[in-house]
Simulated scan of single mutants.
Amino acid sequence: MTGRPDRAPAEIAFAPDVPAGVRRAVEHAARTRPQVLKAAEPPLPTFDRNALARGLRATGFLAVGVTVLAPVSYGILIATQRHAAQLPGVGTGHTTSAGGFGVGFLCVLGALAAAGVVLSWRAARPNAQEVADAKAIGAAAGRYVLPGGLSDEAVELLYRAQRATARVLATAVHCDGLLDDQRNQVVLPAQVWELAQHLAEHSDLAGRQPEQAAGGRVVPLLKAHRAALAASLAGLERRVTVLEDYAEQAVLADRRYVELQQVEQLERSGAGVLDLLARTAADDLAVAEVEGMTVQAAVLAEAFTTALQQAKDAAVVAMPAKSA
């Protein structure tokens, strides 16, 4: 399914139980060989006869070139030896080595041919990693959703859900276990995967409907079909909105959490500041300002507690507990 060039940069949605190695294989194939992922059964890499033929042809051309240059090289060698034989103190023994030129040439030619055949064979043989990746992709069929197969509206919702989930998981309140980190790591990816499946189904159904009614009898059916799809998409958008609300509350609690940590750090050093002020300047106003840090910390702690509770309440809405 094609879309606008400015579509949201959504990532591939995976089922939560898909291993990391399989995810990397699918993502690599999406970048390098996207047609493999579109096939019902991704083909396994096979022995590339064309690559072997290309390699053997190149080896043949190289052998022909060496053979053509051989007489020239031999002529140069003979001329050099004759010239050397005419020099004082140089015997004819040097010229007898020219007879070994043919043997040496055949050895070089044979080595080049053998190397060419071996390299061509290795280039044509399927890479073990590619075979393993293809098998992994085939085994993961139906366990991932490609953004390229979604409609523009669907890929936008998927991107928003992925972004909201990433924002929650990146907060310090999540990383420090203040927002039920285990539940976030399990439920949020599961919700994004479920959403992706619904969006894929919606996109498939939307892509099948005709753009225009062929006759008057089709008009009401087409309108009802489009209305049902619009209602379905609106319901999915509400789920995304709830996730985004949760992310906003988590980020707000995170800001209060960081502020509280900074104030507590300043409060811990307040005693030293107060002592320094008492020893350097008996200024009641300055002392009162430093002592007021404790009150400020208490106020901020209360604000953080409120923000954290609001984030937890939003989590209940975004990730309702399923009854046993």
Score class of each variant (00 low, 15 high):
residue 216 G to L: 08
residue 153 E to H: 11
residue 35 Q to F: 15
residue 252 L to A: 10
residue 296 Q to R: 13
residue 295 V to L: 09
residue 288 A to I: 07
residue 195 L to H: 02
residue 186 V to C: 13
residue 241 T to P: 01
residue 291 E to A: 13
residue 289 E to G: 09
residue 123 A to I: 07
residue 38 K to E: 15
residue 75 G to F: 11
residue 43 P to C: 01
residue 256 R to D: 06
residue 294 T to V: 15
residue 236 L to Y: 08
residue 206 A to F: 11
residue 13 A to V: 02
residue 113 A to D: 01
residue 62 L to S: 13
residue 157 L to I: 13
residue 209 Q to T: 10
residue 82 R to P: 06
residue 218 V to M: 01
residue 180 D to S: 08
residue 14 F to G: 00
residue 18 V to T: 08
residue 123 A to Q: 05
residue 40 A to R: 06
residue 133 D to N: 10
residue 275 D to E: 15
residue 30 A to R: 02
residue 57 R to I: 11
residue 181 D to Q: 12
residue 276 L to K: 12
residue 221 L to K: 04
residue 145 V to W: 00
residue 157 L to W: 05
residue 241 T to S: 13
residue 153 E to K: 08
residue 67 T to E: 12
residue 222 L to A: 07
residue 173 V to N: 07
residue 321 A to K: 10
residue 164 A to N: 06
residue 48 D to M: 00
residue 221 L to T: 12
residue 101 F to N: 01
residue 162 Q to V: 05
residue 205 L to K: 08
residue 161 A to M: 00
residue 94 H to C: 11
residue 212 Q to M: 06
residue 7 R to D: 09
residue 98 A to T: 10
residue 131 V to W: 09
residue 264 E to M: 15
residue 12 I to K: 00
residue 179 L to G: 03
residue 109 L to Y: 04
residue 198 H to Q: 14
residue 120 S to H: 01
residue 5 P to V: 11
residue 189 P to M: 12
residue 170 A to V: 05
residue 148 G to V: 03
residue 115 A to E: 09
residue 114 A to D: 02
residue 137 I to W: 00
residue 156 E to N: 05
residue 24 R to T: 09
residue 227 A to G: 14
residue 4 R to K: 12
residue 83 H to I: 10
residue 113 A to P: 05
residue 115 A to Q: 07
residue 134 A to N: 07
residue 306 T to K: 05
residue 156 E to I: 05
residue 44 L to N: 03
residue 312 K to W: 08
residue 259 E to V: 14
residue 239 R to E: 14
residue 226 R to V: 14
residue 164 A to C: 10
residue 105 F to A: 10
residue 128 A to F: 01
